[in-house]
Each structure stands twice: as C-alpha cells, then as structure tokens.
Design a protein around this nucleic acid. Structure first.
Lengths: 131, 131
DNA sequence: TTTGATGCAAATGTTTTGCATGCAA
DNA sequence: TTGCATGCAAAACATTTGCATCAAA
C-alpha cells in the first residue's frame, strides 16, 4: 500500500471533524473547508474522507437518510437520528455488544459485529411535541 | 391520500417477494419480473416498491452495500450480511428490543426504535474459511 | 526526481420524476 | 369518464474516477 503524503486539505478535514460534533456529510464538509481552501474540490474531499476512514482516524456513519455522514470521534459509541430535525446525536449509553452473542446463539455462521443506530425525537424536538 | 388501484405489476412484485428469501435489490426484482412482464420499467418497480413499503406490505432493508434490498417478510426479525458473499440472511434470534431502554436511560429525547443488522461470515463462507 | 495529491470534469450507480398514454373502477 | 398506474427517458443525487498538473519527500 502506498505511503500517505502530507496534504493540507486532508489536515483541514481531520481538524474540522475533530472539533465538530455535528456528524456532517461530505458536502457539508466540502462547504466548510472551502472557506479556508476555496479551490478544493468535492472529489478531493471524498478521497480524503475515504483515506481517513481506512486509517481509522474517522468513522463513516450511514443513517440511510440520503448521504453518509462522518464523525471524528472514533471511540465506540452509538448514534441517534432525529426524525424531525434529521440531526445525528451521540448517545451516552452502556455497551450493547452482548447482542452479538444473542444473534449468534442459534446461528451457524460467524457474527463479527453489528451496525446499530437509534431514532426518534431529539430532546429539543421532543419538547416541542409536548407543548 | 389517493386510493390504490389494482395493478398486475404490483401484484407480481408482491408475489415474488412473498416467495423469495433472498432479500433482492430493486434491480434484481426488475430482472425477475421482466420474465413475466417484459415491458415493465425500472421506474415502475421502484414506484411499486415504495408504495408497498408505505402500505407496510414489505420492508426495505439498508445494509449500506450499494443498493437497498426488499423483504416480503414483515414480521419483526433481524438481518445478517455476509462480508464474503454479500448475501443477506434472516436471523432466528430473541428480541433485542431492550436496547431501546438502554439507549434511553440517559437520554432526554424519545427513543422510538432502532435499526440493527449483523455482519460476519454466513454458515457457508465460514466453513470455507475453516478449511 | 519520484510518486502521491489535487482540481476539474466526466462517468457511475441508484433512485426519482415529468409526461403522454394505458387501464382499473 | 375519472384519475391512478405505466413505460420511457431525462433528471436528480451521492460518489467515484481519469487525467494532466502540483507538490511532498
């Protein structure tokens, strides 16, 4: 595999993702980085996001609401998608790794992991619904 | 909302999905229905799949491996994606609905549900890896 | 220098949509 | 006859890729 070469664009993307908790899409990231590097192209953003995911420096989240989202927080954690405002939030919760055991109990293959996200109303939208 | 009108194309799609356990993609369904209705268009397949999902007669599965897949089995159940052969299997397992409670324990919003699927090696691919 | 990274545009793959026509009710 | 459904093609989106050029090492 080829050695990675430094690039200020990639650095800016990593930097941005490490400071935001918004779980932005590639396009949102593109819009943001463009303020600093007006000539950056969407292709470069995608290429670098994929590189960073491969390196394990960021995480790709798929909430099947259109486009993929990215997260600079690589600690194992869970995500929540608000059906109202479409925001993605981090959930502070106990591990649910045991569901792999439940899934494998009666299964002849090998369970290596799971993809899980929760949905519903975020605190803010929930409050508005209660009014 | 407009009343649904009978259509033999939609009926054929529903019929196909009720008999297969392959979790086919829209394109696979299209290829199959075309044997019976050579003039059916992909657009019609997509339109009807969306209608059937809305009616709750089929389920849309997103395993983020390219395209969405569809399932005629609407009973609550879980899916497994084989990383080797890319097949989607049904899992016979206990409910894991309690993870919604775990997720909501320390959360101010409202958890309405979760999307979960498991991945690893299916029985067949697992056997080959053991050799 | 060598080779990975970039910008740009074109291509890809999936899904949706506009529109004239067809068909169920 | 009314209006949903269809076939077809074009459009919409998200993402990837080819290529000439740029810039790390």
């Amino acid at each position: 595999m080829a050695t990675l070469k430094y690039s200020r664009q990639r650095e800016a993307i990593k930097e941005y993702l490490s400071h935001t908790h918004d779980h932005p899409s590639a396009d949102t990231i593109y819009m943001h980085i463009r303020q600093q590097y007006p000539n950056i192209s969407l292709g470069t953003v995608y290429r670098n996001l994929n590189l960073l995911v491969e390196q394990g420096e960021i995480i790709k989240i798929n909430c099947q609401d259109g486009s993929d989202r990215f997260d600079g927080n690589t600690d194992p954690h869970y995500h929540f998608l608000c059906k109202d405002c479409n925001n993605v939030l981090d959930l502070e919760m106990k591990s649910i790794d045991h569901i792999n055991v439940i899934a494998g109990a009666d299964f002849d293959g090998k369970i290596e992991g799971n993809v899980t996200f929760f949905y519903g109303l975020c605190p803010e939208c929930n409050r508005q619904h209660e009014v």
